[in-house]
Design a protein around this nucleic acid. Structure first.
Length: 109
DNA sequence: CGCCTGACCGAAT
DNA sequence: TATTCGGCCAGGC
């Protein structure tokens, strides 16, 4: 079902650069609904749009989270992008965490 | 509007 | 570190 919110959520999803990860809560926030992390997960679950980096959205604390009927696939895709997963968590999560900025600036600009 | 579910989050133990 | 519990929100009926 295409809803305005789902629309924005998928839009944010497209902004996530490869090699980085973000959380459901962050996506919800960027989509304009802070706290709707659960809803975001539901949207991904129903979303059928191909070509979107669903696997780059993980749970808080660096936990991999779910992935429909293929939770292992999510981990595999993340590892394939250069991440390291240990005990269901991404190592160096806070280092690779995407904050919603594709245009990283190193001071001054 | 109420009821239920879920790819969640944060705090407490 | 792992487990438990309450809160939060969107979607479908």
């Amino acid at each position: 079902m295409i809803t305005p919110f789902a629309r924005r959520v998928l839009n944010v999803l497209r902004q996530i650069p490869a090699g980085r990860v973000t959380t459901y809560g962050e996506v919800a926030r960027l989509a304009g609904r802070p706290g709707a992390a659960r809803a975001v997960g539901n949207i991904f679950r129903e979303a059928v749009e191909p070509g979107l980096p669903y696997h780059r959205v993980i749970a808080a604390g660096g936990r991999v989270g779910g992935y429909g009927r293929n939770p292992h696939l999510k981990a595999a895709l993340l590892v394939a992008e250069g991440h390291t997963i240990r005990r269901g968590r991404i190592l160096g999560f806070k280092e690779k965490r995407w904050r919603g900025r594709t245009k990283g600036r190193t001071a001054r600009g």
